[in-house]
Design a protein around this nucleic acid. Structure first.
Length: 690
RNA sequence: GCCGGAGUGGCGGAAUGGCAGACGCGCUGGACUCAAAAUCCAGUUCAGGCAACUGAGUGUGGGUUCAAGUCCCACCUCCGGCACCA
């Protein structure tokens, strides 16, 4: 039987984040914070109780301040607190109060630092002094050792605590030019940089790192402590006391203990006829489910009634997709072929739990030999929410009344700014409440079905992709949707108009479409269309670059630019010009295909290209199309744009400099000054410094 | 409080240190129309100018650079996450 603890994987879950370049930094940071690796020192304060020598263990990241300890504080749930409360009713009451208080979430943020002295003392391991133990409501049992050393001079929380209860405050760290005062907390008291130990005996003068090293070594020599790493991440217990979950296939036998359900009895299926009564786990009250025989010795036994946390299933469902028909194993060889997932898409709300559990689970499957990869998702995209405008009217009778965006009329001033909103129904004014998440109550949602019926799925897809990057929130806009619709209509009309001509042309060439498309020799094409090819391939270059870096809105705009260029190019008479059109169309269609697959599919066939567009390759960039005879350079004088010059593409530096200096408008700003330097950025600009 | 991210026209947003505002929406003017819608053409950062052009301009203040929306430092605001983490 395996025991797999997520905390055992904390180190790898943290360090492997560096090997996930396809994940957003934001998510990786959130996971790193959640795992919360902390380097410090764990050590014990020796004491004797009930005739036995013991240690009060504490964790600290500031071992360098150890000589400033003036008290210790333990959590209410700490065993020492429990033991001391046996002889101290007041303390027992206080502990009860703490335990009650900590449940109240609302109070947690504002809760006062409260504590109570126990009258019990432990011994400082390095200077032998007696240190009183307090119970503090701000000490967490679940982090570190559930106990802390109190150094009020150099920890803001301890400072407040000491001031409140009149505990001694001992400065043990100093910084140049700073004065320590007991009056009020100052931020530098807790600095680790540019400080040194003071009032710390043999450690005086050491900086943070040296002091921690020396103190950790001394504690180790005394056998009471040493350096340690502590994690914020807690263990993940996967069992839940409820019906609705995956059964845990274990049988409890009085003699054999926990016995796995044999393979031939799997899967364990939940009973479907039980009636939950709202108290406890209904499975435990269902004898037909609970009562069974021990698979090992055959005597009556009890089936496990806890079920698994739903995060278990979501941690590896994607692995199962690759081997869904395998009834004998969790995974088989096909999984290693299909996974890890190339591109995972989900909401940001899964940034920590689901995505961390999945990473853990995958590593467990790797270590048990089930799969041979350790990270489940190569690339992650966390998409944003969809927002829309909110309009409402407040009235005494009906209260607040929301208006859907298509129920109002907007008036603008001459700059396009919204000046007045009125209801279409009654012409009366409506209040505009800005942009917010779509919700039924605010009546600003959009029904995808009616959108698809009005404009088609491709328009919706194009609008969503074009309007904003997917990981950002998307502001819905009816006008924007119409704009996308307009583009697709323009694209459709243009294509259909030229399809007939292209088909004729093709017929004349015995239907050799595929060859026509890919093997065209454009060196002899119409000179007027070299400009179109230049544009098409320039936009293709941008689209390819943006697709690579997952910036899809500019892929959509590249497609728009291609259509604009095609429409501006004018006529396409038969012959080489038609060939240029044919190539540009094939590129445009393939760039659009991922965004508007339906439109692209139909038009691809309309134009008679070979095969299905789904199988067509992403267009290849023709470097030759990007070659131009002359180029336009910007001319700057002292970094300010002053002129444009046209130079031969292969012009040398000297002649570029000369034309720049001769540019009339540049002349005006150079005149009478000494030219100190001329910077030429090939293909871009010339900067004249004077 | 700590850790991220962001701040660019009226709006959504482009810009691989090298011409800020691509592309689109909206708006303005025009064409077509009996008229409207649709479509097409032109204009649209702000200020000045008939124009050529000039000045200012990417949250604020500094810095690096021939050149900064982009890099560095400090600050402000907003969004998200974590939050008594020792």
């Amino acid at each position: 039987m395996y025991y797999m603890r997520i905390t055992d994987y904390a180190d790898e879950l943290l360090s492997a984040l560096d090997e996930l370049p396809g994940w957003p930094e934001r998510v990786k940071t959130m996971q790193a914070n959640w795992i919360g690796k902390s380097h410090g020192v764990t050590f014990g304060f020796p004491y004797e109780l009930d005739g036995e020598p013991k240690q009060l263990r504490v964790f600290t990241t500031r071992a360098d301040t150890i000589m400033g300890v003036t008290f210790c504080a333990v959590a209410a749930e700490h065993p020492l607190a429990t033991r001391l409360a046996q002889d101290n009713p007041a303390l027992a009451d206080f502990i009860d109060e703490c335990k009650r208080g900590s449940v109240m979430e609302a109070d947690l943020a504002t809760m006062d630092k409260k504590g109570m002295a126990t009258g019990f003392h432990v011994r400082h391991p390095l200077n032998g002094e007696q240190v009183e133990v307090w119970v503090g409501n701000y000490v967490l049992m679940s982090y570190g050792e559930g106990a802390v050393m109190g150094v009020p001079a150099h920890d803001e929380r301890d400072f407040a605590f000491a001031k409140k209860y009149g505990l001694p405050i001992q400065q043990v760290v100093e910084a140049d030019g700073k004065t320590f005062s007991l009056d009020a907390w100052q931020d530098w008291y807790a600095d680790k940089d540019n400080v040194r130990c003071v009032n710390s005996g043999k450690y005086d003068g050491l900086d943070y790192a040296a002091a921690v090293d020396a103190i950790a070594a001394d504690l180790e020599a005394l056998g009471v402590g040493g350096k340690e790493v502590t994690w914020r991440l807690r263990d993940w217990g996967i069992s839940r006391q409820r019906y609705w979950g995956t059964p845990i296939p274990i049988i409890h036998c009085p003699d054999c203990g926990a016995v796995p359900v044999p393979d031939e009895q799997l899967p364990v299926v939940l009973p479907e006829d039980l009636v939950p009564d709202g108290s406890g786990n209904p499975l435990a009250k269902t004898p037909s489910f609970v009562n069974c025989e021990c698979p090992r010795c055959g005597q009556p036994a009890r089936r496990e009634t806890d079920t698994m946390d739903t995060f278990v299933d979501s941690s590896w469902y994607f692995i199962r997709y690759a081997c869904a028909d395998n009834t004998d194993a969790m995974a088989d060889a096909r999984v290693n072929y299909w996974l890890p997932v190339d591109q995972y898409i989900g909401g940001i709300e899964h940034a920590i739990l689901h995505l961390l559990y999945s990473r853990f689970w995958t590593k467990v499957m790797r270590d048990t030999g089930l799969v041979d990869f350790g990270e489940p998702f190569k690339r992650l995209l966390t998409q944003g929410m969809v927002l829309n405008h909110i309009f409402y009217r407040r009235s005494d009778k009906t209260g607040i009344q929301y208006f859907a965006p298509d129920e109002v009329e907007l008036a603008h001033d001459e700059t396009g700014r919204i000046t007045r909103v009125t209801a279409k129904a009654d012409g009366q004014e409506v209040h505009y409440d800005g942009i917010g998440t779509m919700s039924k109550s605010k009546r600003n949602g959009v029904d995808p079905q009616s959108l698809i019926e009005t404009y088609g799925a491709d328009t919706a897809r194009f609008f969503i992709i074009f309007t904003s990057p997917p990981e950002q929130t998307l502001e819905w806009s009816e006008a924007g949707v119409k704009g996308s619709f307009r583009f697709l209509q323009r694209f459709w009309a243009f294509t259909v108009e030229h399809a007939a001509a292209i088909q004729q042309e093709s017929a004349a060439r015995s239907g050799q479409y595929a060859d026509y498309q890919y093997a065209a020799d454009f060196r002899h094409s119409h000179p007027a269309h070299a400009a179109l090819r230049l544009e098409t391939h320039t936009h293709l270059q941008q689209a390819t670059f943006d697709l690579e870096r997952q910036q899809f809105n500019t892929v959509a705009s590249a497609a728009m630019k291609m259509l604009n260029a095609l429409q501006a190019a004018g006529d396409f008479p038969a012959g080489p010009a038609r060939q240029t059109l044919h190539e540009s169309m094939s590129i445009l269609l393939r760039v659009l295909a991922p965004i508007t697959p339906h439109v692209a599919h139909v038009l691809w066939q309309e134009l008679g290209y070979a095969g299905d567009i789904l199988d067509a390759d992403w267009p290849t960039l023709d470097e030759e199309a990007l070659v131009r005879d002359s180029i336009t350079l910007a001319v700057q004088v002292n970094g300010k744009l002053r002129a444009q010059i046209e130079v031969a593409a292969d012009a040398d530096r000297a002649s570029i400099e000369q034309s720049a200096l001769n540019a009339p408008n540049a002349q005006r700003f150079i005149d009478g000054k000494t030219i100190r330097k001329v910077i030429v950025v090939p293909g871009k600009l010339v900067n004249i410094v004077c």
